[in-house]
Simulated scan of single mutants.
Amino acid sequence: MFEWIKSIALAIVIAIIIKTFIFDTTYVLGYSMYPTLHEKDRLFTNKIIYLIGEPKKGDIVVLEAPDDPDKDYIKRVIGTEGDLVEIKEGIVYVNGNPVKENYIEGDIYTHNDLKIKVPEEEVFLLGDNRVEGASKDSRYFGTVGIDSVNGKAFFRYFPFNDRFGMLK
């Protein structure tokens, strides 16, 4: 009986360590990342990746919401430290080059013309859903400190359909 209890306790401790420091799960609420992510998608998030590296352009990240610390947001990294991000006439540019955004739907117009240089230790984030008002992102709250980024979403484990698998 003691061995059985010891094995269960060890499994619980290992699970807590993994969930706290290495991997987590994320439940998607809302449509700010549509069509890449849909409401009620469930994702695995790598929490350790940004302890040993920094977010890269195109990463889908989970972050502490800058406007509500009780929430997490999920967004895509568009610009990293030192980049000049511009939105002109609905097109996103990084360092003067248009961003190839094959993850957004059709000819969606990216609202809110702006020009911003990403400060050190910060990132510029956008939701994939560019319909006006669909995403609270860096157009709304500005750049975000890398320390607010909790991890990289990398795998959709639910629903079990054609969207199951690695995220792009």
Rank of each mutant, 00 (worst) to 15 (best):
I22C: 02
M33G: 02
D137S: 11
F155E: 06
L10R: 15
V92N: 09
Y73M: 12
I16G: 03
D128K: 07
L126F: 08
E3T: 09
I108C: 05
F155W: 13
K88W: 07
Y103E: 02
I78H: 01
T80G: 08
D70G: 06
S138P: 12
G127P: 07
I48H: 02
I12M: 15
E86G: 11
T25P: 03
H111A: 14
K40H: 12
G53Q: 09
H38E: 09
L10N: 07
E132R: 14
K136D: 04
S148G: 01
I116Q: 13
Y140G: 06
D137Y: 06
G82Q: 06
R163W: 03
H38W: 15
D107C: 01
I8D: 02
T36Y: 04
Y27S: 06
L51N: 09
F158W: 15
D107Q: 07
K56E: 04
I17L: 15
Y140P: 02
L43E: 03
G106F: 03
Y27F: 14
A9T: 13
G106R: 04
F23P: 01
R130K: 14
V92C: 11
D70N: 14
I18A: 02
I14L: 13
R156K: 12
G127Y: 02
S138A: 11
N161A: 12
V94Q: 05
N46H: 05
I108L: 07
K100E: 10
Y27E: 05
V77M: 03
F154D: 04
V13W: 09
G142N: 08
V28W: 10
K57L: 06
E39F: 01
I5W: 12
A15M: 11
T80K: 12
E120G: 05
P119V: 01
F160D: 01
A65S: 08
F158P: 12
S32R: 06
F155N: 09
L43G: 05
I5V: 13
L63Q: 01
S138Y: 11
V118H: 10
V144G: 00
E105A: 11
R139H: 10
E120A: 10
T45G: 10
T45R: 07
F155L: 10
